[in-house]
Every structure is written in C-alpha cells, then in structure tokens.
C-alpha cells in the first residue's frame, strides 16, 4: 500500500480503561484499542467498529489515525487483534506507531488463483499449506494480499515460498523451502480400504505406571 492510499480514521482517546468500560464501549459500537511505540507513552483509544472492521477485511495494515480531531495524524500499523471466545468478533486492536520508511514484519493474506495441471489428474488433492505469509517490507509498501498463481506449478506437486512472485521491495521472512501449496494423490488401494471402513479391533492402551510397578515388584523380589 502506498502512502497516498493510507486510509484516515478518526479515533477518540479514552480516559477510563478496564474490562467493564471496554464492554460498554463495544455495546455503543466502538472498539477499544491502544496506540504504542516509538518510545512514547501508550494511548488508550476507541474506534468505530464498522469502519475499522471494513478496513481490516480489505487487508489494510497501515492507518493514519487522527486522535480527537487533532490536525496531526499518526501513522500506525495494526500490530495485534484480540478475538472473542468464539473467534469471530474482534474485541481489541493494538496499533504500533511507525514511520513510512521503517521496515516491519507483517502477515499478508495469500490469494490462490487457478488450478495446477497436476491437481487435475484423478485422485489428486490440492492443499494450501499457508493461508498467510510473513513478509519484511517498508510500511509504505505493504501489499493488501499476495496473489499465488497455482498454474505456474504445472506438473509439479509442490510450490514453495521461494517460488512466489512477491511485489517489489517485499521479501519473505520464512524459509524459501517452506511449502505454500502441494498436490497429493490418493492411491486406489487406500481408497478401497477407506470405503470398507472396518473399525480396527479395540485394544487396550498400554498403562505406563503398571509396567513400572511390575518392574519394581521384580526388583523387590530379587
């Protein structure tokens, strides 16, 4: 994302902190958050939930925050999200103050395009090993998503991080050999055994403590 595209968002400083006040804020349609970093005091803030969620779902990582209508904006990176117990609602956002020229580590969503030729064979299963990729880049160059063209795999069965076409000035933080997607094949024999679904004979698990106590008894006997 380039600098001129950085979305601006209005936040309000919150004087009262704690779970009770945060719960009240959420009921009013605002999301509690905190801004920290650059050796300055952390600031507790609240943001409009709908506004921030629509930006996060688009893959936005960097925001220009205006605190209480001040003229100066703070460029912040979405550092962490806290989820509710069922994992679908965001309940808190962490923002880290950043410079646009700073290098940061961020997780960027992968978007898979196409189907490799190897996955079109009979019994082939295409699996995506990664759903997001940790990249190192300047704040001004964070991509919203990384497109993975699976058709480039052709007849091969493995696509690794090293083979990804990353945008300019963006490099992967993980090992180049890390698999991104792979194609596996179900053999006929396996398929037959799966269909039969014979439940294995129930056997008792080995009890470790009983084996030990038997050894101790033997030792005591000798």
């Amino acid at each position: 994302m380039k600098n001129h595209q950085t979305p601006k968002i209005e936040v309000k400083a919150r004087e009262r902190t704690g779970s009770r006040y945060c719960r009240r804020l959420r009921a009013q349609g605002r999301l509690p958050g905190v801004i920290y970093g650059h050796k300055r005091e952390p600031l507790a803030v609240s943001i409009d939930t709908k506004e921030i969620m629509s930006l996060l779902q688009q893959g936005t990582h960097v925001l220009a925050l205006t605190v209480d209508g001040a003229k100066k904006t703070e460029t912040c990176l979405v550092k962490d999200l806290q989820f509710g117990y069922l994992g679908d609602t965001v309940i808190h956002v962490d923002f880290a103050r950043v410079d646009l020229d700073e290098e940061v580590h961020v997780h960027v969503q992968l978007s898979f395009v196409g189907t490799p030729a190897s996955a079109q064979k009979a019994g082939a299963i295409l699996s995506h090993d990664l759903s997001d990729l940790e990249v190192i880049c300047r704040v001004s160059h964070i991509p919203e998503e990384i497109k993975v063209d699976l058709e480039r795999m052709k007849d091969r069965t493995l696509l690794t991080v090293g083979e990804l076409m990353l945008p300019e000035d963006v490099r992967a933080a993980s090992d180049p050999g890390t698999p991104v997607a792979h194609v596996s094949f179900v053999h006929r024999e396996e398929a037959v055994t799966e269909e039969v679904e014979v439940a294995p004979a129930t056997t008792e698990p080995e009890v470790i403590t009983e084996a030990k106590s038997d050894e101790q008894k033997k030792k005591a006997g000798t």
């Binding site: 698990p205 080995e206 009890v207 470790i208 403590t209």
Partner: peptide, 11 residues
C-alpha cells in the same frame, strides 16, 4: 476408532 496408545492411569 481413536484411542491413546499409552496411558499413565487406566481410569
């Protein structure tokens, strides 16, 4: 069916 291979206590 799934079950542990080794356990510390039977019950």
């Amino acid at each position: 069916m799934k079950m542990p291979k080794r356990i510390k206590f039977r019950k």
